[in-house]
Design a protein around this nucleic acid. Structure first.
Lengths: 233, 233
DNA sequence: CCACGTAGCGCAACAGTGTTGACATCTATG
DNA sequence: CATAGATGTCAACACTGTTGCGCTACGTGG
């Protein structure tokens, strides 16, 4: 009542799925500052929050659509002309970078399947790399899932971590400095000996270790298959 | 209003952190049926929901305490007398099993650090295995994180998946059967060729591939270090 | 043995979330 | 031009975590 509408109503640019998705991405890109909520989305659009429900059945469908848009940003950032190893490495690097660009989306989508266009492009890309490595059939499907799940999980975890309040994040980080240095040296000799190194581990190398481990596993399996073995792990 | 209290008030057994944690585990073990909410917790305890706040600062602290209890269940299920590889394999298997026993806890805790007693025991266990494999210093810390993050992420993802409503889960599962079989064969040849195999991949072998890949990575790094290389990835 | 201070608990309420149904209004179509 | 359908607004509902206020029963000091 007597609330001046932010946008002169029906002034040309109506709402659309595209506009809503882009507004969602703008909010998600702002990070943990303001959460990705329907009311916040309405504010960003200069419209009533519930107007979104005229274009998406519920927030879940909106989220999957936004996620697929993000997948598009990922797949289009992968350069052409790379060997299968470097293509997987590029995919891993780009996924993490884009995922951290929209943490609110990446953290929720990590354990979902969008079943939309750009997801297909990503699956095709990974399958192509694995096929080029020398795997096919059940082996290819199995190792595709290993790679995809690992990437999604790591990106989702990193995104969720980025969404924490600064206090909670500081608590987690400083724990390696504080609590882990004070443990009983008798019961926890390894922690005691390595407390300094544990505190200094950065996320990027950890990610690299995981990705390289999977690449090596694919290579090893391909060599085994070429050598005559055919028992799937 | 005329709501008969389930428990005669002050009848000997008052609330306690222990009792609240155990009630939380009972609820979490029931799966996606009823969510792990404060009000549901009060109901399970036969007490007012807000009574919980006399024993835990907020739900987050309760959750970390519950998670550490779950960690205890994990670490005590690892048999003694195993070599480092089998110890890591046992840890992976037990983590997933216990995580799926309490999906509501596992899904939220996946990207947290409890900084409590049982977490230390788990860290010490992993560090011990890695040390036995022949890694130390920054290498050990790095590979510890790779293993721990991968396990936590996968268990958390599997738990979150188990928490979905049956409809959403059915949609995800059938997508490999439905949508993925209908994609354009021209644009997505690999998906088309492997759609049957993709639909048949089960989670357990995928997890195995990831775990074995990390074990192999640790072994390879240990061999490289023993051979004279000392550059950390 | 009694008073009292406090810890434990119940109750009502608040702010925030996603979502729905009724109403209004604008657009496009016949 | 009239009407039907799509689109936006508003109020409200059910649910979440959380807090302030009171009451009550316990255990402890005098």
């Amino acid at each position: 009542m007597a609330k001046t509408p932010v946008r002169t109503r029906r002034s040309g640019s109506q709402l659309s799925r595209e506009a809503i998705i882009e507004a969602s991405l703008r909010i998600a890109a702002r990070g943990s500052g303001d959460a990705f909520t329907v009311r916040r989305l309405g504010e960003e659009l200069g419209a009533d929050p519930t107007a979104v429900y005229r274009h998406f059945r519920d927030k879940d469908e909106l989220l999957l659509s936004v996620a697929d848009r993000v997948y598009g940003e990922v797949v289009e950032s992968i350069p052409d002309g790379l060997g299968w190893k470097d293509r997987l490495r590029a995919l891993a690097e780009v996924s993490l970078r884009v995922g951290l660009k929209y943490p609110a989306v990446a953290s929720i989508t990590a354990s979902r399947t969008t079943r939309r266009a750009n997801e297909f492009r990503l699956v095709e890309l990974i399958l192509g790399a694995i096929n080029e490595a020398g795997l096919d059939g059940a082996d290819a499907a199995l190792h595709y899932r290993a790679v995809a799940d690992a990437l999604l999980a790591h990106v989702g975890q990193a995104a969720a971590y980025a969404l924490f309040t600064p206090e909670a994040r500081a608590g987690d980080e400083s724990s390696w400095m504080r609590e882990y240095r004070m443990v009983d040296a008798e019961r926890f000799p390894h922690i005691t000996r390595l407390s300094a190194e544990l505190a200094e581990v950065r996320p990027a190398p950890v990610y690299t270790v995981q990705v390289e481990a999977l690449i090596a596993a694919i290579e090893a399996r391909a060599a085994a298959v070429a050598g005559g073995e055919d028992a799937v792990v």
